[in-house]
Nucleic acid binder design. Structure first.
Lengths: 180, 180
DNA sequence: AGTTGCATGTAAGTGGTTACATGATTCA
DNA sequence: TGAATCATGTAACCACTTACATGCAACT
């Protein structure tokens, strides 16, 4: 996972490990954390595999600049267009979807939409079972918070579904603006 | 984490490891996965620490029933009322909030609301910076998907904020119903 | 002179997963 | 009788975190 994120970040150009960490932190950092303890060994592995090249700067700072090599780019793009991905991984992939052909991208997004709709229906099914169970109880209010997290799940699934729909249509990025 | 989830699930009554897995899967399973490979060793640790008791059934199935011991209950409730929790852990804690005193619960939820609002403001700040950067570009559409995940983050943060507000007010669980 | 930021790295530990191994029970 | 489900457990592995260790550079 981290290795692909690093390759993806290097698509924009050469960077040091330190800068890669910063870039990850203030882009996908809200849902994907990378620590130096995992980042530096990952960069070493990528260099060993010949996916990135290392340029040691002479500016006395002991800084290393990593660049994407053709094989690394290939591996990254291959990963990017793969179908199926766990929900956390979906989000990271979408972050890099500007690098993907329009048709492959739309196919993947359609698949993600499908899984989101599936998830939503599954949660709605659970909800109606829970609603029935609750109706036959003396003190349904004792289960308020248990049930509330189901509500969270439903809110999340609905939001996710709508968001994927929006980005498939390439809705104006303004939908992202604050309401003010 | 898993150990607390197991203790929490045992608050309802005795259960086997297998049943605990099922219960986790169809309650908090949507945001917390537990595999047998982590579950059984966790139960053993809980038994070794004296937090749960093990009753081996004689029904030839080699089934073990786990029950919460007073010390285990104490440890669980102590964990539950702790302040600060990572966002994934917040959700799991809230699932068990029916076991918490009203006043402690409201204090924790108020804190969670605070962090949600903080997160939202941080994302809105990032968004206005990104909007400026985008305005000074020749091809802002080349960054559509990069920016779209920021939109996801904003949607998520807003949803989370509203949800916490709702459950603080103990809004009708009906808000959870499908729109149909 | 001291703190913060830049910069890289290692070692031990954590919290899991995956795959395997075993065996009883239930139901079609 | 064979498949699905119930039931428990281990061993190898994995991706990562935390804490540590080092040192230079920039600012104040």
């Amino acid at each position: 996972m981290l290795e692909y994120v690093l390759l993806g970040m290097l698509m924009e150009g050469q960077m040091s490990g330190y800068d890669l960490k910063k870039t990850i932190d203030h882009t996908v950092g809200h849902f994907y954390a990378a620590s130096f303890g995992s980042l530096y060994p990952a960069l070493k592995r990528l260099a060993d595999k010949g996916f990135v090249s290392v340029f040691e700067t002479a500016d006395s700072k002991n800084k290393k600049l990593y660049s994407l090599l053709p094989e690394g780019k290939e591996v990254f793009l291959k990963w990017l267009e793969e179908p199926q991905a766990a929900s956390r991984e979906q989000l990271i992939r979408i972050f890099f979807f500007d690098y993907l052909d329009k048709d492959v991208r739309l196919r993947r997004l359609q698949e993600y939409l499908y899984t989101a709709e599936h998830e939503l229906r599954a949660l709605e099914a659970v909800q109606s079972i829970v609603a029935e169970e609750l109706a036959g109880m003396e003190h349904p209010e004792d289960y308020y918070y248990r049930v509330s997290v189901l509500g969270y799940g439903l809110n999340h699934a609905r939001m996710q579904k709508q968001w994927i729909k929006d980005i498939m249509e390439r809705k104006d990025l303004g939908h992202v603006k604050p309401e003010s």
